[in-house]
Simulated assay, not measured.
Amino acid sequence: MKQGKISDYVNPIPIKITDDKAIFKVEKLVPTPYIERVLPLEYAPLYEQLAQLDTAIPKIVCLEKSDRLTVVEEYITSPRLDQYLENHQLTSTEIHDLICQLLDVLEVLHKQTPLIIHRDIKPENIFYDGQKLILADFDIARNTQEEADRDTHILGSLGYAAPEQFGFSQSGPASDFYAVGVLMNVLYTGSLPSVNLYQGPERAIIEKATHINSQKRYQSAQEFKDAITDLGRSSWRLPGFRSHQPARMLMATCGYLLMLFSSFNMEAKGNSAVDRFLLRLSFFMILFMIVLFACNYRNIKDTCLFHSSKSKFVRFCGIIISYLLVATVLTTALAALSVAISSFGL
Rank of each mutant, 00 (worst) to 15 (best):
L281F: 12
L278S: 08
S235E: 12
V26L: 10
A56S: 12
I23E: 12
G270Q: 08
D230C: 09
G156F: 06
S311H: 13
T18I: 07
T55R: 01
T328W: 13
P114D: 03
L109P: 07
L187M: 07
C62G: 09
V105R: 05
F24A: 05
R150K: 14
D137Q: 02
M266T: 14
S234R: 13
V30G: 01
P114A: 04
Y34T: 10
S7K: 13
L50D: 02
D176E: 02
G190L: 06
E94W: 10
Q3Y: 11
T113V: 12
I6L: 15
K208S: 04
D275I: 02
T253L: 13
Q3A: 11
K301R: 15
P31L: 12
P239L: 07
M251R: 12
L292P: 11
R280P: 02
R242G: 05
A141P: 03
L53E: 07
K312H: 10
Y256R: 07
D104H: 05
I95K: 14
E64S: 13
F261G: 00
I76P: 02
Q89R: 15
K132F: 06
F241H: 11
V38K: 08
I134Y: 04
L41Y: 01
E223K: 02
H153Y: 15
V38A: 00
I321P: 13
Y84W: 14
G130T: 07
S191T: 04
Y160T: 02
E94H: 04
I134V: 14
T144V: 14
Y75G: 00
T93H: 14
A247Y: 08
E202F: 11
A221D: 07
L135K: 03
E73Q: 10
I17Y: 03
V182I: 07
Y323H: 13
Q145S: 13
A51V: 01
P239A: 08
S282Y: 05
L278E: 05
G270W: 08
D176M: 03
G130A: 06
R298D: 11
M285Q: 11
R237W: 01
F288V: 01
L324T: 08
K132M: 06
R233A: 06
A161G: 03
I121E: 01
R80S: 08
F284I: 00
R203C: 08
K25E: 15
E223L: 00
S171L: 04
G190P: 11
R68V: 02
I116L: 09
D275F: 05
R150Y: 10
K59R: 12
K208I: 08
K21F: 08
V38T: 11
L258G: 05
H211R: 05
S342C: 00
K111Q: 15
A252N: 07
A227E: 07
E207T: 12
N296A: 09
Q170C: 01
A56G: 00
L29A: 07
S214N: 13
P31E: 12
E86H: 11
D54G: 05
K111L: 02
S311I: 09
N296I: 10
Y34M: 10
S78D: 14
E164T: 04
R203G: 00
T70N: 05
